[in-house]
Design a protein around this nucleic acid. Structure first.
Length: 644
RNA sequence: CGGGGUGUAGCGCAGCUUGGUAGCGCGUCUCGUUCGGGACGAGAAGGUCGUAGGUUCAAAUCCUAUCACCCCGACCA
């Protein structure tokens, strides 16, 4: 009643089922595959509008607001300030950084009445950098960290799994600006603060999650982390070391040391086999009766000639090309590889070939190849490679021999001559360097000879995706374990990629102009909601954690007459609970009890209070936790609020 | 963009092969009986069969085109 009371504990909501919209259904739509998708639809949280577009019904919106609120509180206390940017963005802004090309068809474009092209922003690096450029010019105004919670648009090839990959989704994106990397006010400090804030956010949301190292940005080092909700139905694969706690995305995951040696006896004479029309390793292996772990896969890379498709992965050299930042100065729509780039002189003639070798059952990792080669690389253009004489599909490590400029990078598991487990020479099959042929009994030393000892031509390095069972990079003797996850957060050190491309500089103490150092930090808000359901449900429905449940308490009175003791008790309890800051849903529908119980389980509020004759006779109500089975326990009406 | 598949009542589906009155379950509405884990009976409403064209006396059904959506493969919160 007093103001001071309501301040210390904000009053919760009391809503009646009959006055809101909760359209539950017995059956899920046929397109819903994952448990989370099915339950969100069945429990009346979301309804599909079109591919990758969803209505957030009242229950969903309540959850989303709670997630957003937690994010706000943690972002604000980590020193960030909330703002709001437009979803519409002039295409010229994205041209300045080349991301209109980099995003390609994933970028929604529309044409206004004057014929201008407008983008629906997929993220806001350009908009905020452009804005900051006009607002900040001195080191004294930094650091600063700005965020917004807003709808984003991406024209996904294939929207999937409702909110997990929609074409329109709610995201919190934050951008920090600094003059230094290290030290007070530097990027690292803000990055660490965001890391802590994210741990707080997802912990408070009640999620079971793992922080993993992700693909690092242009600055290098451990510059990017992903926050993964642990869930078998997740799309991402992560690897963990149970001893050291190290965890990383497959693409990023390092491996511990693996032994290798080229020295060992051949298993027999080189034997050429005709293998016509066999597309993959699997098929060739079956045909030759060789298992993929006994095959060498040689993949041809070349030095990169076009910008990498992923926004953060572009070469460092390019950003600095564009020093002026006014929209008119950006050169038409040509990709930034044209013209005066330092890489273009070499790429204009012929690319440098990088031959990579991994075992047949392994996958090459492009970014590890890049690290090993010390230069940006891309999968070789098939036409160019064929012109250069590569029998694409049938290349063997021997292809290095006639090519003076090329280098050969071999994964340790492929660089073997002895099969340790059998104590015998290692049997290898590989391509024959001519179409439709493979060879058996490949032996490194015999086939390649002295070139193996030339470090400028041949390297052994980790260049493949890690797998479960690989040695841990952080603990001797430990092996990596695989798990699945749903990415709900990603923090990133951007460096000067955007500030350089857009000419955002500030003056330092010595009146020097320096490009601003940036970080960006995202949370998928709508995705978080569904990830939580994927992670936390049972056969009967959703099981919300307290912090983001649409209502904390779900009251089911058996009799609905306005002056019945059931309803009076329900309303009295609801009032007291709400005064204690709890949100309450009263199921006042004229439905049979079974229906109400089923629906209560479906929508998944953490606590259920059932008000029925038997209990009331003893002055009690039944209080049941959604996370527990059974009928719940009898609690005196007067004590119910306190118990809860 | 490749490969596979589906469009029929609000939702889930049958009917199509072999053209001939558009059906079932759930849900919705009315009346009655029920009332602590998705009740029962009786009745009722609700469909341009994705769209356009064609074949035919006649098309949900056959043909052509087109659109939308879903599933499996490359990027991302």
């Amino acid at each position: 009643m007093t103001d001071s009371n309501t301040q210390s504990a904000p009053r919760g909501d009391v809503h009646r089922w009959s006055r809101t919209l909760i359209p539950t259904t017995r059956e899920a739509p046929s397109d819903a595959e994952s448990a989370g998708h099915q339950l969100l639809v069945r429990a009346g949280y979301i309804r599909r509008v079109g591919a990758g577009m969803y209505n957030y019904l009242p229950l969903a919106w309540r959850v989303l607001r709670k997630v957003s609120q937690i994010i706000r509180e943690e972002m604000n206390s980590a020193g960030a300030a909330e703002m709001l940017m437009p979803a519409l963005e002039p295409i010229e802004l994205m041209k300045q950084t080349g991301r209109d090309e980099a995003y390609g068809d994933n970028l929604f474009r529309l044409t206004d009445r004057h014929g201008r092209t407008i983008a629906l922003a997929p993220t806001h690096e350009e908009i905020i950098t452009d804005m900051m450029k006009g607002a900040v010019s001195s080191y004294k105004q930094l650091p600063i960290n700005l965020y917004q919670i807003q709808t984003k648009f991406r024209d996904e090839f294939r929207p999937r799994s409702a909110l997990l990959r929609g074409r329109e989704f709610i995201m919190k994106d934050a951008y920090s600006f600094h003059t230094t990397i290290e030290g007070p006010g530097g990027l690292n400090e803000a990055y660490d603060a965001m890391h802590r804030a994210y741990v707080n956010i997802f912990t408070r949301c009640g999620l079971d999650f793992t922080v993993v190292e992700a693909e690092s940005g242009p600055i290098g080092g451990s510059a990017s982390h992903e926050f993964m909700v642990n869930c078998e139905s997740g799309e991402d694969t992560i690897l963990r070391c149970p001893q050291s706690g190290y965890a990383a995305n497959v693409e990023k995951c390092e491996t511990g040391e693996r032994k290798w040696s080229f020295e060992g006896d051949p298993t027999g004479d080189l034997d050429k086999v005709h293998t016509p029309n066999l597309p993959g390793i699997e098929e060739v292996g079956k045909f030759m009766k060789v298992k993929p772990p006994n095959m060498l896969k040689t993949i041809v890379f070349q030095t990169a000639t076009t910008p990498q498709p992923s926004p953060p992965g572009r070469g460092q050299g390019e950003g600095s090309l564009i020093s002026s930042s006014s929209p008119t100065s950006s050169p038409s729509s040509s990709p930034p590889s044209s013209g005066q780039g330092k890489g273009s002189s070499s790429t204009a003639s012929s690319p440098t070939w990088i031959l990579t070798v991994v075992r047949g059952d392994h996958e090459v990792n492009e970014s590890k190849v890049k690290d090993a080669a010390g230069a940006p690389v891309q999968i070789a253009d098939e036409k160019q490679a064929k012109q250069a004489g590569f029998a694409i599909g049938y290349v063997s490590p021997r292809a290095i021999l006639e090519r003076t400029g090329a280098i050969l990078i071999i994964d340790p598991d492929a660089a073997r001559a002895i099969d340790e487990t059998k104590g015998k020479p290692m049997f290898w099959a590989t391509g024959a360097d001519e179409p439709d042929h493979h060879v058996k009994h490949f032996n490194w030393r015999r086939e390649l000879g002295a070139i193996l000892d030339d470090p400028s031509r041949v390297k052994v390095a980790d260049i493949r995706n890690a797998m479960a069972g690989d040695p841990s990079p952080r603990a001797e003797g430990a092996t990596l374990e695989a798990a699945r996850g749903i990415e709900v957060g990603h923090i990133f050190k951007l460096g000067t990629k955007y500030s350089e491309a857009m000419g955002f500089t500030v003056l330092d103490q010595s009146q020097q102009r320096n490009p601003v150092i940036m970080g960006c930090y995202g949370v998928g808000v709508s995705r978080t909601m569904q990830a939580c359901v994927e992670m936390s449900h049972d056969d009967d429905g959703i099981v919300w954690p307290h912090a983001i449940a649409p209502y904390h308490v779900h009251i089911i009175p058996m009799k609905l007459e306005p002056d019945s003791e059931h309803m009076r008790t329900a309303e009295k309890l609801a009032k007291e609970l709400s005064e204690n800051g709890l949100d309450v849903l009263i199921d006042d529908r004229d439905e049979r009890p079974g229906v109400k119980f089923k629906d209560a389980d479906l929508i998944g509020c953490p606590l259920r209070i059932t008000i029925g004759d038997k209990a009331l006779e003893q002055g009690c109500v039944e209080v049941k936790k959604r996370s527990e089975g059974g009928k719940g326990e009898m609690v005196k009406v007067e004590e119910a609020v306190r118990v809860i």
